[in-house]
Design a protein around this nucleic acid. Structure first.
Length: 245
DNA sequence: GGCCAGGCCCCAG
DNA sequence: CTGGGGCATGGC
């Protein structure tokens, strides 16, 4: 099964991709990349970023066997992958995401990139690095439209420390949540989209409704060891009206 | 014009 | 530990 670029890149995992015709573009590691299909992924050297080696087929079959609703969700997004972003970028993105919608998250990060990030080419700017964001004040961030998230980003510049690869998920989650503006949901998104932790279950407003409606008697543990993947399939299916919520 | 958005902080019980 | 109000802003 080939990668579903639309759902993987524009479904709320990452907020820096843009679509022009059938071409998806973003800035990754300081350069503009353009992707139309899996051949482009390989040509750009993005096999790891797009997580091409993970056994999505096998995991999907396992999840589908657990319940009809889950089977429906999996079947509706067969090419959905989990991106492997940098921890810094994911943290920046998901602090911005709180109580916010995908369109506005995208717009805010674009403004921040143009304001403090490196200019790459044309209209393309990279998200600011920690060093580039550090001198930006809370006031400037509020002017850009970040609202009450502004002080969280200021604090992040002082507190950021990458999660070690071998740290267990529970410890890592607590570490993340010790930072200002990072609660359980944002921590889970960071752990999933930059550390590829399959044992998290980001619970946003959509997922609360999905679980109450479809799995009132079950917790996320039912989906182990692929809780995070289950969550992604359900999230996509709910937003696309494939399953009730 | 009110509700909602990939929520979190803080405080009261 | 749990519940609920407040918080910035713009899309719909």
């Amino acid at each position: 099964m080939s990668v579903d670029l639309e759902r993987t890149l524009l479904g709320g995992q990452c907020f820096t991709w843009r679509k022009t015709g059938n071409c998806y573009s973003s800035v990754i590691d300081g350069r503009v990349v353009e992707v139309r299909d899996e051949r482009d992924i390989r040509k750009e050297g993005l096999e790891d970023y797009f997580d091409l080696s993970f056994p999505y087929g096998e995991a999907g079959r396992f999840l589908s066997s657990l319940s009809p609703v889950m089977a429906q969700a999996v079947a509706s997004s067969p090419g959905l992958h989990i991106l492997r972003q940098s921890q810094w970028n994911a943290t920046l993105e998901f602090i911005t995401s709180q109580n916010n919608n995908i369109k506005r998250i995208t717009m805010l990060l674009e403004k921040l990139s143009a304001y403090a990030g490196s200019h790459i080419s044309g209209r393309w700017y990279a998200l600011p690095t920690r060093e580039q964001l550090s001198p930006v004040s809370e006031h400037e961030l509020r002017d850009l439209g970040f609202g009450y998230r502004a002080p969280y980003l200021v604090a992040l510049c002082n507190e950021f420390a990458p999660i070690p690869k071998d740290m267990d998920t529970g410890t890592a989650r607590s570490l993340l949540m010790a930072r200002k503006g990072i609660g359980g949901k944002v921590a889970d998104c960071i752990l999933l989209f930059s550390c590829h932790r399959m044992d998290v279950f980001p619970m946003d407003t959509w997922m609360k409704k999905v679980m109450a409606k479809n799995f009132p008697d079950h917790g996320q543990d039912r989906f182990a060891p692929y809780q995070a993947l289950a969550q992604q399939y359900l999230f996509e299916a709910a937003r696309n009206g494939v399953i009730p919520c």
